[in-house]
Amino acid sequence: MKLFTAESARGRGESAGKPSWSQTLIELTRRGPVHVLLIFLAIVWLTPSLGILTTSFRAPADIATSGWWTVFDELGRLSLTNYEDVIADSESAPPGIAQNFLNTIIITVPSTFLPIFLAALAAYGFAWMQFPFRNTLYLLIIGLLIIPLQTTWVPVLRIYNIFDLAGTWPGIWLAHTAYGSSFAVFLLYNFFADLPGEVFDSARVDGASELVIFFRIVLPLSKPALASLAIFQFVWVWNDLLNALIFLQDSNMMPLSAGIRELLGQYGSQWNLLAAGAFISMIVPLTIFFSLQRYFVRGVTAGAVKG
């Protein structure tokens, strides 16, 4: 992302093309309020994150005595010490941020691929196969898209206690698979339904089975949709707090989101550790966002615009 102030200055200069000064002036006064409003909103939206990011590099003594917006007076004292401290500290909020980070990866990777694989199978079935109650079943899945998970907690926990799934990794993987798959079916169905059916037909003439068509034709053709979905589901699971608290229960298995909450509860005032911890929990989603932004946004808009 480029600095918006620099770009906006360029934008204003060029928006009038090469015409005379007076025209430039008229254009500026007419569009001026639009730029002011947009830049104001951009500053408002950036300030909260900027505060925590700046604080994560400041010395605890500076944090205690002055606001993060005075950081320019102390540039020489900024350091990564807070990050070292919060990573080394596994006493205050067990099991520590490093273990939380590892747990988050253990939770997130299977919880991303499992629902997408199962949903892709189902979406192909709904889009290209003929069977009784096909539309009814698909509409049932659509209905489950926005069901509040609150209505499922107690009965699912009962099942988990019976089968000893509470506090296990497969338990959290299954929960995320279930909660993520209806959206995945919906998104992939829309994409699969638009694939060229003639390609499947000629493959069938050549003797390909439905499974071969699915693995060799549908999945490779759907890489953009699968990528959008994978990124969306990955970030969703990475950021999850509630399912981890409900189904993992054991503090040694907790992900970053729960670890940060623990830090906030114990150290409501130790902002050096809190800021560094919060930023550590954001690094992976932010990296994904900046490198794969187009896919991510597509995942969000796909359902809505097409829907």
């Binding site: 939206w45 300030t47 909260p48 950021n239 999850d240 970053l256 800021a275």
Partner: peptide, 30 residues
Amino acid sequence: RVRYEATIKSIIFLPMVISSTAASVIFVFV
């Protein structure tokens, strides 16, 4: 219709990718 459209949309979209816990910490601070 502004030149920095992509940039401002990224800035507004950015908080959507961080966890509610991180957002909460950020706003308790604000």
